[in-house]
């Protein structure tokens, strides 16, 4: 049941990112809103759920973007691996560190994009304003990233509550496994 939550929240974030953010004409480039979802999974959820999130959300984002297939999947897998390692040392569950963790995710995504530009035979070129874009994404990440992670955590608690009421046996089994 909890995987259903990730699928729904993933699609909601895609719609927010592709419809609401551009039509709202927000100043500057918005960062990838799936990064807070990935960080929520890394910080608060088990390993297998994070892998599912990285693969599912990565494939969905790669499919709807005009960029080369794999940029987003690679970003989420790298954020997952490095993020899990960082969490062990920094205890990034601390809410004051959350915005910086989001900035880290944004930086990894931009690094993956620039690496793709440098791949042998790559036809992808970095836009002239890519540094300014990174700055804008970092600012948006600092301002809203922690709120999004907390919001996803809050919604997941509500979802779990509903699922416990609707399917008590399934939830108990899932808890037992976790």
């Amino acid at each position: 049941m909890t995987y259903g939550f990730y699928v729904i929240i993933g699609f909601v974030l895609i719609v927010l990112q592709t419809c609401f953010a551009p039509f709202a004409a927000l100043p500057g480039d918005m960062y990838d809103l799936q990064i807070p979802l990935m960080l929520y999974l890394i910080l608060f959820r088990p390993f297998r759920e994070t892998v599912f999130g990285a693969v599912f959300v990565g494939a969905a984002m790669d499919s709807i973007s005009a960029g080369p297939f794999g940029i987003y999947s690679m970003t989420y897998l790298l954020v997952f691996i490095s993020g899990t390692w960082i969490v062990r040392f920094l205890h990034s569950g601390n809410r004051w560190l959350l915005p910086f963790f989001v900035v880290y995710g944004v930086a990894v995504e931009n690094l993956v994009f620039w690496s793709v530009c440098l791949l042998p035979g790559s036809v992808v070129r970095p836009p002239a304003d890519s540094l300014a874009s990174l700055g804008e994404q970092v600012l948006w990440g600092l301002l809203t990233g922690a709120v999004l992670i907390s919001g996803i955590r809050f919604l997941h608690r509500i979802w779990t509550g509903w699922m416990d009421d609707l399917f008590p046996r399934v939830s108990e089994r899932e808890e037992g496994r976790a």
Binding site: T18, A60, P68, S73, S122
Partner: peptide, 24 residues
């Protein structure tokens, strides 16, 4: 591997995109 193949093409895969676009 997928990334290195698709990065060397001007227009990318059509298959998976159709599924995701149909869903979203």
């Amino acid at each position: 591997m997928a990334l290195s193949v698709s990065a060397s093409r001007r227009y990318y895969f059509a298959g998976p995109a159709n599924v995701a676009v149909s869903f979203t």
